[in-house]
Write a protein that binds this DNA or RNA. Structure first.
Length: 507
RNA sequence: GGGCCGUUAGCUCAGUCUGGCAGAGCAGCGGACUUUUAAUCCGCGUGUCCAGGGUUCGAAUCCCUGACGGCCCA
């Protein structure tokens, strides 16, 4: 649609031509600014801007930003100039700028502009820069989104996030909070003596979680590789090697559906601590989340989807068995196999197919009947072994493992266990997973990783491990309803852009 | 994978039920205006009504298929 595009930008094209005729470079390489808008205004408000004398003798400022408003008044113009800190008003007068004012006639909303001048306060009370010189920094060839209603079209907001950031002032703070959340978690762990590592994204076996992987191919090695679905087994190899406290914050990939709290790639924190167990990890999670909330929000009470959630420790602790019994009335002990449990769930109106494994049924029961009630932070403890192939069994009951998940705002935000370090039992658990996969074709199970078993055979100390979904934690802290609002570029179905696609690499 | 809803100007949206000249605000274009700030005043409507097919004298509107998005369910 070249004609249409040209029409949209026709007058901007003409202005660009006129600028070039005036020998103005519309894309100069640099503009040395002396202050951000915020710094400039703060400086003025502190009364240090030398507010005596005329514009030739006062302190000069050089500021820059995007033009977000234009109010022409004959031989003068007001502009709103927005940089990453705030808006600053610019006043342009023909009698001061002289020939420099010609540029003003060729400016548009969205252009990037530098201004040098002195600061003053207008009659209306706004701190404003009186420009003695203006420099075009970049001509915008397309108009920005509408200023008053903002950009609402969610498709454009996600596909062209830069427009969302430009038009909607409440977006940047969410991603600032995200950045600080990650920074705080990192320093929390570093302060506790953890070492941060990077483990492979491309792996020969997609193990460590129950999820379908993305598949790719390495040409030189001529072999199939997978994008990791977890970092777990590599981090535990490092525990074997003697890195007693280790963590990774990284992207993992799961080839699954997209909904309010699932994006196919998401950011996961995993940490492992030798000689700790899941009770130690539980205390650390409470501490860490409260510390992060304090740093990011200045308090531990968060507003999330109409609820006030108090993240200060200690969090409620309840066994998974108790929680399911309380919220559904089902005593899962009485239904030790998939058939009887599925039948009981159907009897009580919970949808359950007779082709689901017991683990999957329990997961469904948890997700549909328990999770939505867990608004205040809660640890659900002690999961059935079939849901947790990498966790160590409880000493007094081999059907349950030392595992907890943390919930808040009706979302799962953390998953942790006392790690299974008996190589023979681990092998057996993996084999059970492979057997379940054969039996329940449609479901995701963990995969046997022979190389990991070899590592375990060298001896892994008793270890407490943890995974936290950072995206969901940020949702909780920033009050967002969907994961798409805390991921800058969420996955969307691809759309025909009319451009020729690059050739497919041969498979 | 299934159901429901949506897609109209650069942006935000009316118009669709009940078929009859394609609309508004902001943005834009032309003009006036040297302290405005959603500037104001005068003039101008800029369009592949998501795409394709069908019904009809006539379709943004009704029907079918598809794409993309949203919500709910799986």
């Amino acid at each position: 649609m070249p004609e249409r595009g040209q029409q949209l930008t026709q007058s901007r094209q003409q202005k660009l031509l006129r600028l070039r005729e005036q020998h103005i470079d519309p894309y100069p390489p640099r503009f040395p600014r002396t202050h951000t808008n915020q710094e400039a205004v703060a400086y003025f408000q502190r009364g240090q801007a030398g507010r005596t004398g005329d514009y030739r003798t006062r302190k000069r400022f050089a500021v820059a930003g995007r033009i977000t408003g234009v109010r022409p008044h004959g031989k003068a113009t007001f502009l709103d100039l927005r940089d990453g800190t705030q808006k600053l008003q610019v006043h342009l007068r023909r009698d001061i700028l002289k020939k420099g004012y010609d540029l003003v006639d060729n400016l548009d909303l969205g252009d990037l502009l530098g201004a040098r001048g002195i600061l003053f306060r207008t009659r209306a009370g706004e701190v404003t820069i009186q420009a003695t010189e203006v420099t075009l920094l970049a001509k915008a060839m397309r108009p920005p989104p509408e200023k008053w209603h903002g950009l609402k079209d969610v498709e454009i907001r996600y596909r062209q996030r830069y427009l969302d950031l430009m038009a909607n002032q409440d977006i940047l703070p969410i991603f600032q909070a995200r950045s600080r959340t990650i920074t705080e978690m990192r320093s929390f762990l570093i302060n506790r003596g953890y070492i941060e590592v990077d483990t492979p994204v491309l792996v020969p076996v997609a193990a460590g979680a129950m999820a379908r992987p993305f598949v790719t191919h390495h040409h030189a090695l001529n072999r199939t590789l997978y994008l990791r679905i977890a970092t777990e087994l590599y981090l535990k190899r490092l525990i074997v090697g003697g890195m007693d406290r280790v963590f990774e914050i990284g992207r993992v990939f799961r080839n699954e559906g997209i909904d309010m709290d699932h994006n196919p790639e998401f950011t996961l924190l995993e940490s492992y601590e030798a000689y700790a167990d899941y009770n130690d990890v539980m205390e650390m999670v409470e501490q860490m989340v409260a510390t992060v909330a304090q740093a990011v929000l200045g308090g531990t009470v968060v507003a999330h989807q109409g609820n006030e959630i108090d993240l200060s420790p200690p969090w409620q602790r309840v066994s998974l068995y108790e929680a399911i019994r309380k919220h559904t009335g089902i005593d899962i002990e009485s239904y030790p196999d998939a058939e009887s449990l599925g039948a009981e769930m159907r009897k009580r109106g919970v949808e359950a197919s007779d082709r689901m494994s017991r683990g999957r049924l329990l997961d469904k029961l948890l997700g549909s009947a328990v999770e939505p009630h867990l608004v205040q932070p809660t640890f659900l403890m002690d999961y059935p072994v079939e849901m947790s192939p990498l966790a160590k069994a409880k000493p007094d009951n081999p059907h349950y493992v030392e595992r907890f998940e943390a919930f808040a705002g009706g979302m799962e935000i953390a998953n942790a266990f006392t790690e299974l370090n008996d190589p023979a039992v681990q092998r057996q658990r993996f084999q059970e997973q492979e057997a379940l996969r054969a039996q329940y074709g449609g479901e995701d199970f963990d995969r046997l990783d022979e190389d990991y078993l070899t590592a375990l055979e060298y001896g892994m100390p008793p270890t407490g491990g943890l995974g936290i979904g950072i995206d969901r934690l940020v949702m909780l802290l920033t009050g967002q309803r969907t994961i798409r609002d805390v991921v800058l570029f969420p996955q969307l179905r691809s759309r025909d852009t009319g451009q020729a696609l690059p050739p497919e690499p041969d498979a």
